[in-house]
């Protein structure tokens, strides 16, 4: 029987260090780019990856196979550690980005669909969002921008940003679950 991430996580919960290392080798190459995308900083991303796996080890007994896959569970830990870090320090990354980088990220957010050949369900749902909603959702979810940053980045009022994000999230959940 091959060792799935779920089996490795279950063994980790029982204190199996070898399984934990194999889980790390399996998940870290997938989690690291997520953290890089959110943090824009190699060292910070590594620190958070370390923190993520320490938490995985400490909380492995809380993992429930019926609720999610091992990757989703670990991904959620990693992503929210990164968001906590960003919000705690109120990292105003817009100040560190060049105009070119900002333009590139907005462009990437807007055109992420057209650049993919294999549209999955999420992509299909994203394609049905209004441009503004899609842009705000991707910048917020994938790149970790907070609302204040999006106001200066996209030059729209806070109320509009909030509304686009809320509607975008609601639509995506309905669309993906159908």
């Amino acid at each position: 029987m091959s060792e799935t991430d779920e089996i490795l996580l279950a063994r980790t919960a029982m204190g199996d260090r070898g399984a934990f290392k194999r889980l790390y080798l399996s998940l870290s190459p997938r989690l690291f780019p997520v953290l890089m995308q959110l943090m824009h900083d190699h060292q910070l991303a590594e620190d958070l990856l370390q923190e993520t796996f320490v938490r995985i080890w400490n909380q492995a007994s809380r993992y429930d196979l019926n609720k999610s896959g091992a990757y989703t569970w670990s991904y959620t830990i990693a992503r929210h550690l990164a968001l906590d870090h960003l919000r705690r320090l109120s990292l105003r990354r817009t100040q560190q980005l060049t105009d070119l980088e900002i333009a590139f990220e907005i462009e990437t957010a807007s055109e992420s669909l057209s650049s993919q050949n294999t549209l999955n369900k999420v992509d299909h749902c994203l394609s049905q969002l209004k441009d503004n909603q899609r842009q705000v959702l991707i910048l917020s979810y994938r790149y970790g921008y907070e609302q204040g940053e999006l106001v200066s980045l996209l030059e729209h009022p806070l109320g509009a940003i909030k509304s686009w994000l809320r509607r975008g999230m609601e639509f995506m959940q309905k669309c993906v679950s159908h």
């Binding site: 870290s28 190459p29 997938r30 780019p33 997520v34 590594e46 896959g69 959620t76 679950s177």
Partner: peptide, 18 residues
Amino acid sequence: MVEAQLQSLHTNQVQVPP
């Protein structure tokens, strides 16, 4: 559940080992 639905916004990336 929501993270599982949206995680593919992140998963179309090249894997990078730390």
